[in-house]
Amino acid sequence: MFLLKRKKEKCTNSKEKIMKNALLLLLSIIVLSTGPIFALDITMDAERDDFYNALTGPADGYIYLSPASLGVGSGSGSPDDEFDCSGLVWFSWDSSYFYCYAEVTDELINVNSSTTYENDCIELKIDPDPLMESTSGVAAVRLTAWGEADAEVPDGVDNLIKGAELDEAWEPVEGEDYARKEVLTDTRYGYNLEFRLPFDVIVRAEKYVDVRIGGIMGLAVNLHDNDAGVRDFALRWGSDMDDTVWSDPQKHGTVTFLEGNKVNLSTANAITGVDTNSVDYTPPATGVATQPVQTPVQFELAQNYPNPFNPTTMINYSLAKAGHINVTIYSLSGQKVNTLVNEVQNSGVYSIPFDGSQLSSGVYLYQLQAGSQVFTRKMTLLR
């Protein structure tokens, strides 16, 4: 009887050991299939890192905030066009940080209000754990654009709300946790913003971020624009375009953490499954919106004449030296419409006709490229 009991115990222990080993094997397979979380080598310098150049759209963490993404209830104004305000925004992550990098086109940078969101700035609203299905507990962070040196504005990353669960406040360091710079080039006027948020400070109402491959968190993005001393409007990403994204997690989109430090950005809310946002956030093929900046007269792309036009107009430009020249017409969405010039030209003044009789009414971009120099202007076709 004693021997039989010992055999049964031994058999039971053996089965438990087999089941335990099988479970460990299954877990190891899951870990291997999802891959490890590598630390991301991102430099906080307000310049685009190579990692972001490989991203293609919302499915891997890259969105375009166009004038079509105008939020509701965030000011009385609206963008004139993408040169007034628009932005490309990239997101990434590793086991310690959530990263954000933005290239904003803004023809008038204003940072003159003591209320952060009334300035030109980017703002994130974060629901650390949507699976708790809470209707409160939103963390917030804002980073203002680079403004005048004497502007009385909050300095650095502002207003990251920390829960009572944290014993120490987070004190971000410029160049280590955030960076910002004004941008004035031949093709764009605006500013770049970059920052990283430690996951252990993204805490609200006892909600913590599930930092793992396959984990999720709620997110809303606001790009605020100030042209007259107060916020005129905000461009927005989320499941709802209403201004209540600042306090309501059920208006947020969903971030899913992927392998390779990438994230999936879905405008569907993780709590309700609802998505009332019909805006296309796919970045344009030409990248960030470009705009004309005054250049020396010897190298210039002039405004077309007449403008508006129907259906023909003249495009004039001058070249300071010989080189390969491209003059291309694009739609506002970045789709190439026509190539007018693609050849080597000598220095001098040129005038070329453009016939828009096959196009519908609207605003188009015409672009002059000469070597590394690119100039872009808008023209309006009225049929």
Rank of each mutant, 00 (worst) to 15 (best):
F2W: 08
L3V: 11
L4I: 13
R6C: 02
N13T: 08
E16W: 11
L26E: 05
S33Q: 08
P36R: 15
I37A: 05
L40K: 04
F51I: 05
Y52T: 13
N53R: 12
A54S: 01
G57T: 10
A59I: 10
A68V: 06
S69D: 01
G73P: 04
P79V: 02
S92Q: 01
W93F: 09
S95P: 00
E103F: 08
E103H: 14
V104F: 00
I109L: 02
S113P: 03
E118N: 11
D120I: 10
D120Q: 11
D120R: 12
C121H: 08
P128R: 09
P130K: 12
L131H: 13
M132V: 00
E133W: 09
E133N: 04
G137I: 03
T144H: 06
V153F: 06
G156D: 08
P172T: 12
P172Q: 11
T185S: 11
N192G: 04
I202L: 05
K207Y: 05
Y208D: 03
I213K: 07
I213Q: 05
I216H: 06
I216R: 12
M217F: 12
V221R: 09
N226S: 08
D227S: 15
L235I: 08
S239H: 10
D243W: 14
D243P: 01
K251Q: 05
T254D: 04
T256D: 02
F257W: 14
N261E: 01
K262Y: 03
N264R: 12
T267G: 03
A270V: 06
D275Q: 12
D275E: 08
V288S: 07
P292H: 08
Q294C: 01
Q294T: 07
Q303Y: 13
Y305W: 10
P311N: 09
T313I: 00
L319D: 05
V327P: 05
K336V: 15
N346L: 08
G348C: 06
S351N: 06
F354H: 03
F354L: 04
G356C: 09
L359R: 15
Q367N: 05
Q367M: 02
R377V: 01
L381R: 11
R383N: 14
